[in-house]
Amino acid sequence: MSRNKRLIVACGSGVATSTTIAEKIKNKFEADGINYPVEAVDYKSIENELPSSSIYVYIAKPDSEVLKQAEQLGIDVYPGVPFLTGMGVDDVYEKIVKSTKK
């Protein structure tokens, strides 16, 4: 399957949260030698962003329609808040790394 490899981080307004978390994930990927595109997007445009993504990290809680779309597209979905608070971040990051190797 020629899936488009891209990790997106989506928050409510794109004011700060998604950019902050995207930067944190980028830095971790870089440190671990993982070459994978990471991008911050606005939750309002999520339905247009999902088809060209493979991993979706959410900050704004996704509604059920969005989750259904992600599932149909075979996109892995993970919470982004741990990257902000540091709580449970190792666990989530490990799962994301596994996803990048799919």
């Binding site: 928050c11 409510g12 307004s13 939750y43 900050i59 704004a60 808040v81 902000l84 608070t85 540091g86 709580m87």
Partner: peptide, 9 residues
């Protein structure tokens, strides 16, 4: 719409 509460350490 987008709540901002956070449980930190």
């Amino acid at each position: 719409e987008f709540p901002t509460g956070l449980i930190t350490q």
